[in-house]
Amino acid sequence: MRRKTLLYGVLCVLCVPFVFPTWWMVTSSLKPVSDIFAFPPSLLPGRPQLEAYRQVFELQPFAQQYWNSLYIAAVVTVGTLAVSSLAGWAFARIRFRGSNALFLVILVGLLIPSEVTIVPLFRLFHSAGLTDTHWPLILIPILGAPSVLATFIMRQFFLALPKELDEAAAVDGLGRLATFWRIGLPLARPAVGAVAIFTFLHSWNLYLEPIVFLSTPERFTLPQALTQFVDAYGGPMWNVQLAAASLTALPVLVVFVVAQKQFVEGLAHTGLKG
């Protein structure tokens, strides 16, 4: 009993640095702008108001921007899953010449920060006439550096599946593609969950690429839209920005709450071996 109380105590204390900033974000969005930077910050809005939330939709095509972020993240997630599960399966379970060297080459992309390649990528897409479209935001994550992490996770997962699977599949007369599709992929559900969460969040939070590639408000994504709420003198309208930030964060959190149990336990049952 005492041990339990102690554990709860430790967990509660550890929670503080995680929860306080989120709490501040949400409560500040309910405060008038002059109260937000009061020091020390107040825990509850003295005069709560929903004005900022109304302005979020009034000042920007926010619903459209929300949709942009949502569909881009969804397309990127599905595309990344397709590319990375195929590659991960091949790297883990098919013997072909140079597979280790190729994997190592691809792995390099994992550690390249986007600041390094943004200018050449911009020139590339500009010469293809694709700036101010969503194509760069979709193609780069699916095929470029961000998908490498996904391939890596998928490979580690497929490595952990028992060898006998392929033999059983061969006995059933399944080809390579069928083995992957009918056996590998269904078993990989937890890894798919992990990759989906990583990929979705990465796309959802992407900041540098949208501000460089997009210039029409109707095509903006959420992190970029947040920076657009400024007053008549170019000063940030903090309450509106924070309201928009809260609206951006909450749905993802809800999805996590719903999906986490299956995701964690699924990964636990099947494991992630290296």
């Binding site: 943004i118 200018v119 911009f122 020139r123 500009h126 010469s127 700036t131 501000i211 460089v212 210039s215 029409t216 408000p217 970029q224 920076t227 657009q228 400024v230 170019g234």
Partner: peptide, 20 residues
């Protein structure tokens, strides 16, 4: 075209460097 003020010059230069 509105660019965020905190990286305004940076974004503008990136566009110029990118040929746009």
């Amino acid at each position: 075209d509105t660019l965020p003020i905190e990286n305004y010059t940076t974004t503008l230069t990136t566009q110029i460097a990118g040929g746009n």
